[in-house]
Design a protein around this nucleic acid. Sequence first.
DNA 1: ATGGGGGCCTGCCGGC
DNA 2: TGCCGGCAGGCCCCCA
Length: 283
Amino acid sequence: MPELPEVETVRRGLLPVMEGHIITRADVRREGLRWPFPDRMADRLTGARVVRLRRRSKYLLADLDTGETLIIHLGMSGRMLISGTTLGKFHHDHPAPEKHDHVVLDIEGGARVTFNDARRFGAMDLCPTDDLANHRMIAVLGPEPLGNDFHEDHLVQALAGKNTPIKTALLDQGIIAGLGNIYVCEVLFRAHIHPTRKAGRIAAARIAGLVPIIRDVLSEAIESGGSSLKDYRQADGELGYFQHAFRVYGREGEPCVTPGCGGQIGRIVQGGRSSFYCPQCQR
DNA sequence: ATGGGGGCCTGCCGGC
DNA sequence: TGCCGGCAGGCCCCCA
């Protein structure tokens, strides 16, 4: 569910509560999610100070002063909820655990962070911080789309000769890390590229043109998430879900928003996932 | 080696 | 109202 911008929004929301603070208690309420949790996870978290809360692609990384990093993936339905604090003021008031609350972290001072994940496609693991680059989930990731390693040469080279549809290629986290189904649809719409086009047969100049579009789409979504953060924190403490205006995603049958286009948004299934696009202006 | 499809889970929504 | 199929923003694994 959450793609890079949503995960970044969750990170920013968790920052004031977690970064620099000690986890006083970890309540691990089941054996695992997508995979079993690491041995003694609760023990290894208890008493640890979060020295830094980072993000890599769709992963949250909490570096601990124990030398380990807590890796968190939200999967499709993972949510982070904060309780016990409002705008920096602790009030020691936590709701009772709800269905699908799988891991509860109590933070020094009274805040509480709850990981809720109905579909359990999420994941948590612990890894030595200095060995993170070799972790099986992290090692396979391509460059961060908003980082310096993501540039035109990289994308052109990574897609050269690929028979895969461009839609599928951009979902490949090894080529570029952090895009999901929604933002790939939005990117291809802005680039006027049809989702079924074979990645390796698109002119290099058009591929290069994807780079700034990808950056823009993600940056705008992060901004949109950031502006909604305060509201969510005040509301119910749930982070990462925000209203964002999509131009094609979920708009099957609606008119294309491109001025003068006149097309109607269509939906096809590629690799088992819906692709929304305008058959008129995406070629 | 690469690409396509199935599977993992639960919840929700629309149609009958 | 109740049941059922289809669908969901991610990712891994197996097979051709």
